[in-house]
Computed example of a mutant assay.
Amino acid sequence: MKAPCFTQGQLEELAKVLGDEVTGSKLTLLLEQEHLHDEIALSTKWKRIYNAFANYQNEKCCANQIMRFVKLVLEPARYIDKSSHYHEVLDNVSAILSFVGFEIKEDGKIYHCKQARTLSDAEKRANNLKKQLEQRLSHSQIFKYCLPELLANNYFHSVFETNKGLFQRIRDLSGITTDGIALIEQVFSNNPILIINNYISQSEKDEHKGFCNILKGLCGMFRNPEAHEPKVTWEITEQDALEILGMISYCHRRLDNAHKIRIV
């Protein structure tokens, strides 16, 4: 199957991104490996890559060899201990590939995707979950507990790890070592250890009880199923993840002002 050709502008941008990822000597080997013509006399790496890509497309009227070159440069093994940078590069390359209906994922393989028709469509591919949460000013604790999962756009484990982080923070603040519903009831019961307001008026007590119920809901709905169901049967979409993580971010903000009123 022939991969569709890129436009001149798309080839330039792709060449610039890939040029930053290889040394000059490595570039020579990779171009040779994929039988792409290398104009070594050109002054910059990205121009050598662009020239090789353009020559290939003009001759073959497809982008198959270009796609193979992309996979070579972005082979996951080349990015051990550079996970954050790797996923950023994947996002940028996928944004370009999306114009011809492809994307590259963290396994280093290229897959079909919905073709981007506009710049906004392509930008959405580069705008990963972490960036969206940053734009929403999500609480710093969200990133503390699930940064690797966020960088990989792993919605399932982002929710799982962030929920674990929320309950760990409650343990740290309260000194209670239990977990789940039992932890919430001990810490936020009618004889609470932590309070999120003055806990004097009835409306304050009702708010405190409501917060306790939110925590129980998060534990019951978004944590326990994760622990007992296989990933393939408990799907979490990007929208689901953003809304769940937003709820957890709210809980962390309320914990920022929590007071410990008794010692256990």
Rank of each mutant, 00 (worst) to 15 (best):
V100R: 08
V89K: 12
A41N: 08
V22P: 00
V93H: 13
Q33Y: 09
E106L: 05
I96T: 14
Y79P: 06
S84E: 15
N58L: 11
C62F: 00
E13K: 15
K114G: 12
N92G: 07
C113I: 11
L18Y: 02
E88T: 15
Q57L: 02
L30E: 06
H35I: 01
L11D: 09
D81Y: 10
Y50N: 12
K16N: 09
F99R: 13
V70G: 02
L14R: 06
H112W: 08
S25M: 04
G9D: 13
S94I: 08
I96S: 12
K105T: 10
E59G: 02
L31H: 05
S83N: 13
T23K: 07
K26T: 05
A41M: 08
C61Q: 14
A41W: 11
E34N: 13
L42T: 02
I80T: 14
Q8F: 13
F53L: 03
E12T: 12
L36I: 01
W46Q: 07
G24D: 12
W46H: 15
K109C: 11
K114F: 11
K105V: 04
D38Q: 07
N92V: 13
D107E: 05
V17N: 08
K47V: 03
Y111T: 04
C61K: 14
N55F: 05
E88M: 11
D38C: 04
G101A: 03
D107I: 02
K26S: 08
N51D: 14
R48V: 02
E12K: 15
E59L: 10
Q33R: 12
L27H: 03
E39Q: 09
S43G: 11
A52I: 05
E13V: 04
A63C: 02
L11V: 00
G24V: 01
L31Q: 05
S43H: 11
L72A: 08
R78Q: 09
V22A: 05
H85K: 15
A52F: 06
K114E: 15
G108A: 04
E34L: 01
I80Q: 12
R48K: 14
L36D: 01
D38N: 15
Q57A: 01
V93P: 10
I96R: 14
L14E: 07
T7C: 01
A95G: 14
L18T: 04
C61I: 07
G101S: 02
L97T: 04
G19I: 07
T44Y: 11
P76L: 08
W46M: 01
N55V: 03
G101L: 03
K109I: 07
S98Y: 06
E34P: 00
A41Q: 10
